[in-house]
C-alpha cells in the first residue's frame, strides 16, 4: 500500500470512518496474525490477540499523532499484546525442550558422539519447519520477538527498537544472543545437514 494512501486512511479512520479502518485491517491483519502466531504458537490465541490489537487501535486512533509510522505503532500494540498474553500464560506453562539443552551461550551439552544413534535420531526427528517453530517457541519471549521482527518480518534494528520501545543497543544484543542460542540449539538438534561435519569447533574462541 502506498504510504500516502495509508496516511489518508489513518486520518479518515481516526475521524471514525469505519470503511477506512476496515481497509487498514485488511492491510495488516495477515501480517499481525503471523507475528502473533509466531509469538504465541496457537492459532486461536493469535486470532484473539489480533482482534484485541485492532480494537485497541480503533480506540486509540483519535489520539494517534503520527510521530511514528502507523505500521510501527500497530506492530507495537501487537507485540505488547502478545507479550502480555505470554506473561499471563507463563504461569501454567512448562518450559522445556525434550532434552536438557541450556540456553546460556556456553552450555550446549549435546554433541554428535555416536553416529549410529544420531542417525536414528535424525530419522525420527521432526521436520525442519516444525523444528524451527518448536525451537522458536522455546526461546525467551523477548528473544523471539526480535527474531520475528528482524528475520521473519524484515524490519531494521532502528524500527525494531521503536516497535519494542527499547534502545538500539538492546535490540542489537538481543538479536546477537537470540541467534547464537538458535545456532547452538539447531546444531545440537542436528536438523541442518551442514552441522553434521562439525568437529568440536563449535565453541567460540
Amino acid at each position: 500500500m502506498a504510504l500516502q494512501n495509508e496516511e489518508a486512511l489513518v486520518e479518515r479512520a481516526s475521524r471514525g470512518d469505519l470503511s477506512a479502518f476496515e481497509a487498514l485491517v485488511r492491510a495488516y491483519e495477515t501480517k499481525l496474525y503471523n507475528v502473533a502466531l509466531r509469538m504465541v504458537s496457537d492459532s486461536e490465541d493469535a486470532m484473539d490477540i489480533v482482534q484485541e490489537v485492532f480494537l485497541k487501535a480503533h480506540q486509540a486512533l483519535p489520539g494517534f499523532r503520527g510521530d511514528s509510522k502507523f505500521s510501527t505503532w500497530i506492530y507495537r500494540i501487537c507485540m505488547n499484546a502478545s507479550l502480555d498474553h505470554l506473561r499471563r500464560r507463563k504461569k501454567a506453562q512448562v518450559y522445556s525442550l525434550d532434552a536438557p539443552v541450556e540456553f546460556s551461550d556456553s552450555e550446549v551439552q549435546r554433541q554428535v558422539e555416536d553416529p549410529v544413534d544420531s542417525t536414528e535420531d535424525l530419522v525420527e526427528a521432526k521436520f525442519l519447519g516444525e523444528k524451527l517453530f518448536a525451537i522458536l517457541d522455546d526461546l525467551e519471549p523477548h528473544y523471539r520477538a526480535v527474531l520475528i521482527l528482524c528475520d521473519v518480518q524484515g524490519y531494521s534494528y532502528q524500527e525494531i527498537a521503536e516497535i519494542l520501545d527499547t534502545s538500539l543497543g538492546t535490540v542489537k544484543s538481543r538479536i546477537h544472543r537470540a541467534r547464537n542460542i538458535l545456532r547452538k540449539l539447531i546444531a545440537a538438534e542436528q536438523i541442518l545437514p551442514s552441522y553434521v561435519k562439525q568437529d568440536g569447533r563449535r565453541d567460540e574462541a
Binding site: 491483519e29 495477515t30 496474525y33 503471523n34 502466531l37 509466531r38 492459532s43 493469535a46 486470532m47 489480533v50 525442519l128 519447519g129 524451527l132 517453530f133 522458536l136 527474531l147 528475520d151 521473519v152 524484515g154 541467534r179 547464537n180 538458535l182 545456532r183 539447531i186 546444531a187 541442518l192 551442514s194 552441522y195
Partner: peptide, 18 residues
Amino acid sequence: ELRQVKSALQSLPVLEPP
C-alpha cells in the same frame, strides 16, 4: 551458521489467517 539460522527463519511461510 548464523546465516543459516537467519535464512531458515526467513523461509518460514506466511500463513493465511482463518
